[in-house]
Computed example of a mutant assay.
Amino acid sequence: MAYCPKCGIKVEGDNQPCPLCSFHIPKVNEEREAIVSVRKFPKTANPYPAYLRRVLNRIFIFLSLLVLVAVCLVFYIDYSLNDMFTWSRYSNLSILAGWVVLYFSFGYVQSFYKVIIGIGLDAFVLLFGLDIFNGRLEWFFPLAFPIIAGATVISVSYWSVIRALSVRGFNMIGYFFMAIVILSMWINFFIHNYQNKTNPLNWLIVTILQLLPVLLVMIYVKYGMPERIKQKIARKFHL
């Protein structure tokens, strides 16, 4: 529907004389006016994340090519010297395991749970391969397997507690140190068990003694530390 620009009445179509004043009505592009009326302002977008992603992709591709060259070179040197693959199996397995960690570090997996499980599986494959290359499994199942499984479970549990309880600030650091202490005692238990030196009572006492300072520090920070010091530390470390 068009309007006469002279007398203002509605007319059936544009680009024709007005029936009232005979003024010639100019042609109007209604679709263009509708688009302009909808898009009054330009679409805002932050180009920095996309630019950063492109840069990271290029760096990761370059590092992946270096890893591929290193693996091929190590295999070639080993085979040239020994007419078979000996030490290169250990080296290349470690290089590939490091490449997997690099893949997770570049943000290609967004879920923190998937990152933890992926790194845990990567450690399983690495340690299993290093043990089996000797011709027999000696230390993987009694030592490496429970340690990696425990570290994975503790990491997932820590992140789940942080999210479920909405833990922030100093409490987050306290929970982190508690998880580190539990993990260290878990590792210590299986190392002593592998060496046939495990004493459950002594292990329990040492665990309590290591957890006690962390608990005391958390209690002091929660109830004894002045609020102004808390605020300074929070601003300093962005807690």
Rank of each mutant, 00 (worst) to 15 (best):
L130P: 01
A2E: 01
V38F: 14
F177C: 12
A123N: 13
P19L: 03
S22F: 11
P19Y: 04
L204R: 09
T207E: 01
I119T: 13
E30S: 06
K114V: 02
F60P: 00
N15D: 14
P49D: 03
M1K: 05
V153G: 01
I187A: 15
G135L: 01
H238M: 09
K43A: 10
L165V: 10
L212F: 14
I116V: 15
Y103I: 03
I132G: 00
I229A: 11
L63C: 07
G129S: 02
S94R: 06
K236I: 01
P226K: 10
G118S: 06
F140R: 06
L81Y: 05
I180T: 10
M1G: 05
H24W: 13
L96F: 08
G169W: 12
R53A: 12
F104H: 07
G135K: 04
I59M: 13
I154V: 08
A34H: 04
L73W: 15
Y90A: 08
G129H: 04
F140V: 02
V101Y: 11
S91T: 15
I154T: 04
H192K: 15
C18W: 05
V109E: 13
S111I: 04
S160P: 03
I191H: 08
I191F: 12
K197H: 11
G8K: 01
V167N: 09
V38C: 03
Q210I: 04
M178L: 15
I117G: 02
V153S: 02
P200G: 07
R53G: 08
L20P: 04
F133K: 02
L212Y: 11
I191K: 10
L121D: 06
D131C: 02
H192S: 13
I205M: 06
L96S: 03
K27S: 13
P42N: 15
Y158F: 15
N188P: 00
I162Q: 13
P19H: 03
L81K: 08
V11M: 00
